[in-house]
Write a protein that binds this DNA or RNA. Structure first.
Lengths: 225, 225
DNA sequence: CTACTTCTTACCGAAGACAGACGGTGAATC
DNA sequence: GATTCACCGTCTGTCTTCGGTAAGAAGTAG
């Protein structure tokens, strides 16, 4: 899921962003309401997490404006105050959920994910394919030429990422950040190993290999020669 | 649409009424079961939203009486508990849908509107099956290969959820939220234990196991190998 | 040929999953 | 009120699986 976090407090923001990333989501962060509004307007998010108290533009009016502009992205409000009226106000402004600080990271993640799910499978892509290789996220299945292939969790994430960027060159750094959540160089050959394992499962025994090495750059998943 | 809301809690009622009005519906509100009954009798509504727990006259018997008097207005029950028995009772009393608190305003509106669109007899799915495993929600029975299986309430809910998502991978978080109504990580192995118990009842002794674990992700109920 | 990158295989520690046993709680019964 | 029973969650020990590391082989470019 792509999540936009709008939060002015730097510490709180880092904590939140880290947590959500570790849970496997792509997170963007806006430091105040004005920036948040423009990032939201540019679109492409599956959920918003919005602090009630923000400099420049408060969270409530921000969301109200977006709603009136037709944006239906689910939103969760964060508030330092545990007021009941506060909660109602948030929901009336078009919020879908509400969380009071201090909160448990686990809970935030769970709620954000619940928001995403509530939208139903309609606007989130759940199947991907390249040539005769298909992946179904919901069923967690992978097939090549109709034949089922079993993948380990990490292999699945790796292939998912490659499929989401099919036809593009995916660099090692991209993989480290998005599949392993490493933001540094582990100085090992983790990637090579997993690419090798993945190849053994999806390409071995098929005449046309799909996963190609781009020497010096990374890898690419494509049907083209 | 003309909607009659029967709800005793003032806060909840105002919230609900506001939400439905903003969605463009004409809403009347009754504070207790007795008033609700007489307002319903006077007629003219396209849908009822009824709280299960009401002073004067509980929601269930209210609807039962209306149904026996020939009132076929579609009704949605609100329930504080997510108990299976609770929901079954609601359906048996003539309810057309049910919603568990706390709910999302969006969802309430969507469901109420769905009720209005629905003409004639209701068509809620009350039986589910995967391979030779069958569940009947109303009768609260489970059979595998024709043989009856006794399940505990929690086991029943767990299996119901799995059946509703047959073929998909159901994550632990999904189970915690929808079967246990936990919105945090209990840090225990409740799920493992109940899955284990459920397996002992529905899979043990049958040659083809249906409930499979998807390591690192969750579980899935399917007939496929 | 040499230096560098990429691939492959085996291993082992860590984490995840499972099942049996235990204990607490609430409802029904006496 | 006391007792029993059913149900559910926790704890614990054990087993299984996964994935990162390392080391050497294979491949590629200059």
């Amino acid at each position: 899921m792509r999540v936009l976090v709008i939060e002015d407090d730097a510490d709180a923001a880092t904590f939140m962003v880290k947590g959500l990333r570790q849970a496997g989501h792509a997170v963007d962060h806006a430091l105040d309401g004005a920036i948040g509004k423009s990032m939201a307007t540019s679109g492409g998010y599956d959920a918003y997490v919005i602090d009630r108290m923000l400099p420049q533009k408060d969270g409530l009016s921000l969301l109200e404006e977006r709603r009136s502009e037709g944006d239906e992205t689910p939103a969760l409000f964060l508030s330092a105050l545990g007021e009941v009226d506060d909660r109602v106000a948030g929901l009336q402004a078009g919020g879908d959920d509400y969380l009071v600080k201090p909160y448990q990271m686990q809970e935030l993640i769970a709620r954000v994910e619940a928001l995403g799910r509530r939208r139903g499978p309609t606007n989130i892509q759940t199947t991907f394919s390249v040539d005769d290789l298909e992946m179904d996220i919901l069923a967690r299945t992978v097939r090549r030429g109709g034949k089922k292939i079993d993948l380990q969790p990490r292999e699945f994430r790796l292939l998912e990422y490659l499929l989401r960027h099919a036809g593009q060159v995916v660099t090692r750094t991209m993989l480290l950040e998005n599949v392993w959540e490493y933001h540094f160089d582990p100085q090992t050959n983790v990637i090579d190993v997993h690419i090798s394992r993945l190849r053994a499962k999806i390409d071995k025994g098929f005449d046309k290999p799909l996963l190609k090495t781009v020497r010096g750059a990374g890898y690419t998943l494509t049907a083209e020669a």
